[in-house]
């Protein structure tokens, strides 16, 4: 139970951070600080050189060795952090004197922390919207197959089986790469959610169909039919509500898979593209092995993805140890 609470708090914190990203991010995600290419994360201090406790502050950092990309703190200047000013959660008093880089900067001198926050919107947004879409389509098809039966049922379920046997990641890859390669961010967003829904719906449809078919034979459904409740009303008022628990579980299974799918697609250059910040784009930009070795903070999107997936797994853990299997199949 404690683990589940930990999972819930991880997810809530992430959702909150993504929702409030512009207010939390100290810098603009695309802003380039030319003097801070590959700058390391700044340390937040509470003790100054004299050993006295102060409000949290940072020392500005400056490049001291151009070739080795070594930065050092300028210990003569103390920059106290300012909280809740100008609609920003935290910022240095005068950003013009040098940016606040809590997780360092990337090869263009952009703030990794701010990009991570804004990237959460793109990455989690795609995953959540795609999951909702997959639930809707899957729920609709499953309900149709379960109520209408006959040929519709047969066709829909064979189609679902066909999609299910294919490795989801390859289907995503194929569908994405046969559409125009260069698109705007919003087009990429729409396309990715659509493609993810295509691979996600069969899981939902099969479950919903099974639930609808078995619930229809329950006494309460027969009773409802007997007092003259129509088919549609029976479905929407009685049968579909029975599958809500199942749908909730499905959502928690689909979302990690979709987060990863976004990361993988963007990583190979088929997802979001610069200058949009998403976790996959950031990983792609970090994928130069030399850069990773020297500037490990560029891998922070990997850490956030693991954190979110772990959060979801912790929430799920208690009752269904066998379920995470399904998203492993998605890469």
């Amino acid at each position: 139970m404690r683990l589940r609470a930990a999972g819930v708090s991880i997810l809530l914190a992430t959702a909150l951070a993504a929702a409030a990203a512009p207010a939390i991010a100290p810098n603009l995600p695309a802003e380039q600080f030319r003097d801070h290419l590959y700058a390391p994360p700044m340390r937040v201090h509470v003790f100054d050189d004299g050993g006295r406790i102060r409000l949290p502050f940072v020392y500005p950092i400056a490049l001291v060795d151009r070739l080795g990309r070594r930065f050092e703190e300028d210990r003569t200047q103390v920059r106290t952090l300012v909280w809740f000013a100008d609609g920003q959660l935290v910022q240095v008093a005068d950003p013009a004197d040098g940016p606040l880089l809590l997780l360092g900067a990337d090869q263009l001198g952009r703030d990794v922390f701010s990009r991570l926050l804004l990237g959460a919107r793109a990455s989690l947004g795609v995953a959540v919207v795609a999951a909702i879409l997959a639930l809707l389509v899957g729920g609709l098809f499953g309900a149709a197959a379960g109520t209408v039966g006959g040929l519709t049922d047969e066709l829909l379920m064979r189609l679902a089986d066909f999609v299910l046997v294919l490795p989801a990641l390859y289907v995503v890859l194929a569908l994405r790469s046969v559409t125009p390669l260069v698109l705007s961010s919003s087009e990429v967003f729409a396309l990715m959610t659509g493609v993810f829904a295509v691979v996600g719906w069969p899981y939902v449809a099969r479950g919903v169909r099974a639930i609808v078919v078995s619930e229809r034979r329950q006494d309460y459904a027969l009773a409802a039919r007997a007092i003259g409740v129509g088919r549609w009303r029976l479905l929407t008022r009685h049968l579909l509500p029975a599958s809500f628990g199942f749908l909730a579980v499905q959502a928690t299974l689909l979302i990690p898979g979709f987060i990863l799918a976004e990361a993988t697609l963007s990583f190979v250059g088929l997802g979001f593209a610069a200058p949009t910040a998403s976790w996959g784009v950031m990983l792609q930009e970090a994928s130069n092995i030399r850069a990773i070795a020297d500037f490990p903070w560029l891998l922070s999107p990997a850490a956030t993805i693991v954190m979110v997936v772990l959060g979801i797994n912790l929430v799920m853990r208690a009752d269904r140890a066998h379920e995470p299997l399904r998203w492993v199949g998605r890469g």
Binding site: L299, I305, V306, G331
Partner: peptide, 18 residues
Amino acid sequence: SIVAVSVPPLLASLLLAL
């Protein structure tokens, strides 16, 4: 195992490359 199941191959290989 709950941590390991949350580290997909894409990220595992990046971290191992590091």
